[in-house]
Design a protein around this nucleic acid. Structure first.
Lengths: 345, 345
DNA sequence: TTGTAGGCGTTATCAG
DNA sequence: CTGATAACGCCTACAA
């Protein structure tokens, strides 16, 4: 009994395999009693249709591919959770691969998933969006067009490439405005990984925010980073050495902010008294730091769900316009009024 | 040109499809020049073999299924990362599903993965191990035996069910010994989710540790929890109300410990002076709390890799004995000598 | 309403 | 070494 097939059922029910096939997929043209009989028999025999065989003939695997930069990043994990939930609700399987933040690995992973004939591809935080243009993604069967690719957290208009992201610039700008309203004049920025759209957009938003609040952007107040704990940790020394000395910092993400918080605590730099810190993402842990982190909430699960929805829509041939969600500032204890007289005007 | 197939190549190369197939899979019986010619042609045409068709005939999908309790848990994410890396190295795809810590969802997810004909199944932190016994996991082709199931973080001896885990009891016991050596006599324990093996084992280890150090186990020093931030946060009040008042706490995991740390900071309870805290898992963030968390390192990525290795071994028909790895205490700043005179003897 | 036949893209078993 | 031929399990015209 190496797996019961549609033929076994047909034999037992004394009908043809096609009848069984039809009965099992609620085909309209079949008599109710036959269907009932067959369905019951299938159930009783523990029949499970072979997705593989089905895929071969239909040209669809009912599977979505996800390539994530790094599940270990809480933001990515939350998004992935949203993707998984949505995919499952739609009865889609999820083939997962990790890019480890490396463009080459990302494309390689995407190619592998495509080889497994995923019906659609979702890429979380792409670093090589332009390469999807030339990635061969024709489908075996000429079911529809090419395999749709949804870029989560990236912009890229191209046929068959869809986009779901947050308004990073707007949110970063709002964060700067918050700090400005608290009286901060020298606001530093710890940037994110080069190549990422969110990184670029947050930087842009930071600059827009400064402009909006009539603050002069100073290149020396911008630090490089990669969105990791270590970045924030190492940033403290640099921040303290800056002229003018910043009284507030906007971080690329919560991870960097948490690293900074830890360094500040160790160095005895009071937060928020001596330094206000703002993160980005609102990962669960950000509510449990000391002091609790002021941050920008991203609708992480919703982003994941939207990506799946967009993908399925594209698959159905429906229009799937870019999705842009907006963030929201979560005010907690790591920000406060500027206590230091600013060195400059 | 909806996907170039082996037949297209055959036509162009003026050979039979079988020859092409052989050329492409390094079959011994084929002339070198033919192979070279065909391989070149395939390359040039951008041929990608259909995994689906291949699977249908070979009965193997070259895909592993993983069901994880919750990617959002940093421990799980790290393990998953290890699994992914190992699977990729072995050229296996990864079909992922989440159980959300729910036995019913776990089994349902496993069944879905099995329907997609994964070659093996890895379950991270199972809550329903006994149900794998009756899960139908015969393979379509009678390639080998049943689909192997690897339980990561769970014990369960059953044919076709393998196990990879950490020595939770030993590590928990060692943590208690550490605290005892620091002079603590009243050590509380915040337990993990019921149903999990790791939870049970850590509790056991906690009790063993007490016995080993001649400390009396007091039921009132044990708090329930589920391995979440909130558990630690809410535990503080309970800890302070305890008689005798504990001077140290061992937590089921780092998440609970971090919640506790946050609560202690808010309540003005000094750590480690008034309360020593030990976590479990050594998630990356645990090094960046204030104070930095003393914890038990788990070889997370190694556990994931071992699970894949075990799975592939089982697949190859080789023996795959249970794997038990040991933890190691990471001493940081959240633990210190007992400063309070103990109320009891 | 039901059965028959062909095919999805590959691999594998035979002959040549 | 190479070429027919038959599966693999299922779906789907087309025919009855």
């Amino acid at each position: 009994m190496a797996h019961v097939s549609i033929i076994d059922i047909a034999r037992l029910a004394q009908v043809s395999p096609s009848t069984v096939s039809r009965a099992l997929q609620n085909h309209p043209r079949i008599s109710p009693e036959r269907r009932a009989e067959i369905v019951a028999l299938a159930e009783q025999l523990g029949y499970r249709p072979s997705q593989v065989a089905r895929s071969l003939v239909t040209g669809q695997t009912h599977t979505l591919g996800v390539v994530a930069s790094d599940v270990t990043d809480p933001f990515v994990a939350e998004v992935l959770k949203g993707v998984e939930a949505a995919a499952r609700r739609a009865d889609y399987g999820l083939l997962m691969a990790m890019s480890n933040r490396d463009p080459a690995q990302e494309i390689e992973a995407a190619a592998v998933l495509l080889d497994h004939q995923v019906d659609g591809l979702i890429v979380i935080s792409s670093r090589a969006p332009e390469r999807y243009r030339h990635l061969p993604r024709t489908r075996a069967h000429a079911v529809g067009g090419a395999v749709p690719v949804v870029l989560l957290n990236h912009d890229f208009s191209e046929a068959g490439v869809y986009s779901v992201r947050m308004d990073n610039a707007g949110a970063a700008s709002a964060a700067v405005t918050l700090l400005s309203q608290l009286g901060h004049r020298h606001i530093a920025f710890i940037a994110g990984p080069g190549g990422g759209q969110s990184s670029h957009a947050r930087m842009t938003g930071y600059l827009q925010g400064l402009a909006l609040n009539h603050l002069t952007p100073l290149p020396e107040l911008i630090l490089q980073g990669a969105g990791m704990l270590e970045d924030g940790w190492e940033a403290l020394a640099a921040l303290q050495a800056m002229q003018p000395r910043p009284t507030a910092v906007l971080c690329y993400n919560d991870l960097a902010a948490m690293g900074l918080l830890a360094a500040a605590a160790k160095a005895g730099v009071g937060v928020p008294d001596a330094l206000s810190v703002v993160g980005f993402d609102n990962i669960p842990l950000s509510a449990y730091t000391v002091p609790a982190l002021t941050t920008v909430e991203q609708p992480k699960a919703a982003l994941g769900q939207a990506a799946v929805r967009t993908c399925l829509r594209a698959l159905a041939g429906e229009p799937a316009p870019p999705v842009v969600m907006s963030g929201q500032i979560i005010l907690r204890a790591s920000t406060g009024p500027c206590r230091l007289p600013s060195a400059v005007g």
